[in-house]
Amino acid sequence: MQLESTLRCPSCGHERLERMPQDACQFFYDCTGCGTRLKPKAGDCCVFCSYGSVPCPPIQAEEAGEAGGGPCCG
């Protein structure tokens, strides 16, 4: 399981490697490049699933078929 994901801001293109929480969704993220507040896209559970290079840990577990995997904050 990967616990770090590179978030890419859709407004300015700034990228930053961030550690993902394993036990909670991250609904908001303030871009360190331009200050834009990122929110999940429709149908996504968190900013990592919308703008990250790697989906959040619960989604990774679901894709791998692991027990306990499933929708983040579902």
Score class of each variant (00 low, 15 high):
residue 53 S to G: 08
residue 62 E to G: 00
residue 32 T to S: 13
residue 26 Q to I: 03
residue 65 G to R: 04
residue 47 V to D: 10
residue 10 P to Y: 02
residue 3 L to P: 00
residue 16 R to I: 13
residue 23 D to S: 10
residue 30 D to W: 00
residue 38 L to V: 07
residue 33 G to E: 11
residue 71 P to E: 13
residue 41 K to Q: 13
residue 40 P to G: 07
residue 32 T to R: 15
residue 52 G to W: 10
residue 51 Y to K: 10
residue 69 G to E: 06
residue 37 R to Y: 01
residue 54 V to P: 00
residue 4 E to L: 09
residue 50 S to V: 01
residue 60 Q to C: 04
residue 21 P to T: 08
residue 22 Q to Y: 08
residue 4 E to H: 13
residue 8 R to S: 15
residue 9 C to M: 09
residue 70 G to M: 04
residue 32 T to L: 15
residue 33 G to P: 11
residue 53 S to Q: 05
residue 23 D to Y: 07
residue 72 C to S: 05
residue 36 T to I: 07
residue 35 G to F: 07
residue 55 P to N: 06
residue 31 C to L: 11
residue 26 Q to H: 03
residue 34 C to Y: 11
residue 45 C to G: 14
residue 70 G to Q: 02
residue 68 G to T: 05
residue 30 D to I: 12
residue 14 H to T: 13
residue 54 V to I: 14
residue 43 G to S: 06
residue 51 Y to E: 08
residue 24 A to L: 07
residue 8 R to H: 01
residue 33 G to W: 10
residue 59 I to P: 00
residue 28 F to E: 14
residue 24 A to G: 02
residue 21 P to H: 09
residue 26 Q to R: 15
residue 66 E to F: 11
residue 30 D to K: 15
residue 55 P to F: 01
residue 43 G to P: 01
residue 45 C to N: 09
residue 28 F to S: 11
residue 39 K to I: 12
residue 40 P to K: 08
residue 17 L to N: 14
residue 59 I to T: 14
residue 31 C to S: 11
residue 28 F to A: 12
residue 16 R to P: 00
residue 47 V to C: 11
residue 55 P to T: 12
residue 27 F to N: 04
residue 11 S to M: 03
residue 16 R to D: 05
residue 13 G to E: 06
residue 32 T to H: 15
residue 9 C to I: 06
residue 14 H to C: 01
residue 56 C to S: 01
residue 31 C to R: 08
residue 35 G to L: 10
residue 17 L to Y: 01
residue 49 C to L: 03
residue 60 Q to G: 01
residue 55 P to H: 07
residue 55 P to I: 11
residue 7 L to T: 05
residue 42 A to F: 10
residue 66 E to K: 09
residue 46 C to M: 08
residue 71 P to D: 10
residue 47 V to A: 10
residue 4 E to C: 03
residue 49 C to I: 05
residue 64 A to H: 02
residue 35 G to P: 12
residue 60 Q to P: 05
residue 18 E to W: 02
residue 56 C to D: 09
